[in-house]
Each structure stands twice: as C-alpha cells, then as structure tokens.
C-alpha cells in the first residue's frame, strides 16, 4: 500500500544498547502512509525501544530515525503524530474535557473537542475528573488524546490492555475508521488476535531485529503450519515424536498436533486410532506462526 510514497516514519540501521543488552540491532523499519503496522515480539524484543526512538524519546547510538522525513526530536515533526503510551498517569484532578483541550493546544489544526470525544467514545465523560474513571475509561480518554491533534500517524502501545470485550471492539472500530480516513498506525500488542483483526502488515521483532514481516496471511503461510485437533486416546508424547510433527500436546482433553505435513500426519493419525473423532484441521494462527518463527530464530542463532 502506497509503497511508492516516502515512509511516514522510519528507522535506518538503528542500533541501541542498554549496557551489555542489545535492544536494537541494526534495525530497519518503515511505516508507509495510511497503513496499519503491527509491531509484535516477546518482551525484550525491542518494541518499546523502537517506539521510543521513533518518538524522539531515545536517541539511538547509531543509525537514524525519521518522522515525516525529519528528526523526531524536533517538535515540529511530532505535530503530525498522536501517542497513546502503555502507561501514563494523567493528572487525576483534571477533567476529561480539560485534558483534551490541553493536548489539542499542542497541535496546529486539532479536531474540535466534541469530534475527538465522539470518536473515542468519551462524550459522556467530559466533565468527570480523570482520577475517578475506571481503567477502561481512562484508556479511552488516552485514545481521545492520541487522536485529538488530527494526526497522520498514530502510535498505539498496547491500547486495549484492561478493556473488556465490548470496549475493545469499539476501539478497534475507531482505529479502523481512522485508518480508513488515511491515518497510519503503529500498533504494539500482546494480543495476537488484535494484530490479526487490524493489521495490514505485521513486523515481528526478536532480539532487536526483524524476524519476519508481511501480511497476517503471508506470515501464517510462511511457517506453513497446520493445527490438527481431535478426540483421541493416542499418547501426545508419542505423537510428538513422529517425523514431520512440530508439536503435540493435550488441550482441554483434546489432542492438538502442529505440523507442516498435514496429509501425511492425518493419514498416520487415522491409521493409529480407528476411534478418532471430532477431527478439526485449520491453518495455524499468528500465535503459532510467532512461536515457530521465534524458535527458528533461536535455532539459527
């Protein structure tokens, strides 16, 4: 999408170390205009440091970071971004409307207050002190603050932590409508289903490097894994030892087998257990792909 346009945010060969720990290892990353990019990876993979460098909070030890072609540490380049961090204790005694007005004042052409509030679903909270809100409501307010400046690029760091299912769905809908209107989004999340639901492109980080990138489907396809679930008395440990089986375990009383050779393993399963029932075969999700890619990376290292 818009691959010919210059990226809205970019890391070029960025390396950053904390003591002996390498957080980013010659990392290249580009966010294209209007795309929703999900940044995934286990703790310590370099997600937070990448975001910190892109926001100008961390000055990289080598390589460079660009926001709209300029240094993120210049305030002008940050006037086109919106930010929702993982944790930010906003002043408890300020009212939601006051927080919105304050944050909007940093931007050249912010949305009208009512529009920001409606987009984030906080219109009924405007006169409430921030400290009196529930955790989920506070997250929605932080989302409203992120979008109030009419940004072209939105950084959302674990946006739905602490939200119930309904609130999460509502936030997803809001994110989709912003992306529909041309806003690029960088999303980090622990919920892989969130990335599956929203992301056009996924970048998986591990040990400060890009392990894999592509669409959700492409990443799933890349690992070529299938999950076979069935009701069977076969010993999971024994099945795990079969050739071409990546993993086998019991989940909720069912045998779950992950494999790259679906047909061969299925045939062997059916031969081994005539009483096998409730057979289910599906392509592995992002979570499986993720585990597999991390495993491959560790083995390569």
């Amino acid at each position: 999408m818009n691959a010919s346009h210059p990226p809205v945010a970019e890391l070029v060969g960025v390396t950053h170390r904390y003591g002996t720990l390498t957080a980013l290892d010659a990392l290249d990353l580009a966010v294209r205009p209007g795309e929703l990019l999900a940044l995934l990876g286990p703790n310590g993979a370099g997600k937070s440091t990448s975001i910190g460098v892109l926001l100008g909070l961390v000055r990289p030890q080598s390589g460079r970071a660009r926001l709209f072609g300029a240094d993120p540490q210049h305030v002008a380049s940050r006037r086109r971004i919106g930010v929702m961090l993982q944790s930010a204790a906003l002043p408890a005694t300020l009212r939601v409307g006051e927080l919105l007005r304050l944050t909007a004042s940093y931007y050249p052409a912010p949305r009208p207050l009512a529009e920001s509030a409606a987009l984030a679903g906080v219109d009924d909270l405007l006169t409430r002190p921030y400290g009196k809100l529930s955790g989920g409501q506070q997250r929605r307010v932080q989302f409203a603050l992120a979008l109030c400046g009419r940004p072209d690029l939105l950084f959302l760091d674990e946006p739905t932590v602490g939200m119930d299912v309904e609130a999460r769905q509502a936030l997803w809908a809001a994110i989709r409508s912003l992306v529909g209107a041309g806003c690029a989004v960088v999303l980090t999340t622990h919920y892989l289903e969130e990335a599956e639901a929203l992301a056009q492109r996924v970048v998986m980080l591990g040990q400060g490097r890009v392990l894999a990138e592509g669409s959700v489907d492409a990443l799933r396809g890349r690992v070529g894994l299938t999950r076979i679930r069935c009701l069977s008395d076969l010993d999971a440990a024994a099945v795990a030892g079969w050739t071409q089986v990546a993993a086998a375990q019991r989940e909720e009383g069912r045998l779950v087998v992950t494999t790259t050779a679906t047909e061969a393993v299925l045939r062997r399963l059916l031969d081994a257990d005539a009483a096998l029932s409730e057979l289910e075969v599906r392509r592995a999700g992002l979570a499986d792909a993720f585990v597999e890619l991390s495993r491959q990376d560790r083995e390569a290292a």
Binding site: G56, L57, R78, R79, A88, A89, L90, Y106
Partner: peptide, 19 residues
C-alpha cells in the same frame, strides 16, 4: 518525581508540547 514514575513526563515529551 511522581510524573517521572507515572509516565506523564514521557508522554509529554512524546507529544508536540512546546519545549
């Protein structure tokens, strides 16, 4: 001290607040 711990200072530094 409290805003450094709670992340408010970090958020403000990330936002285009005038220096």
């Amino acid at each position: 001290a409290i805003e450094r711990e709670g992340g408010l200072l970090t958020l403000k530094r990330a936002l285009p607040m005038p220096p």
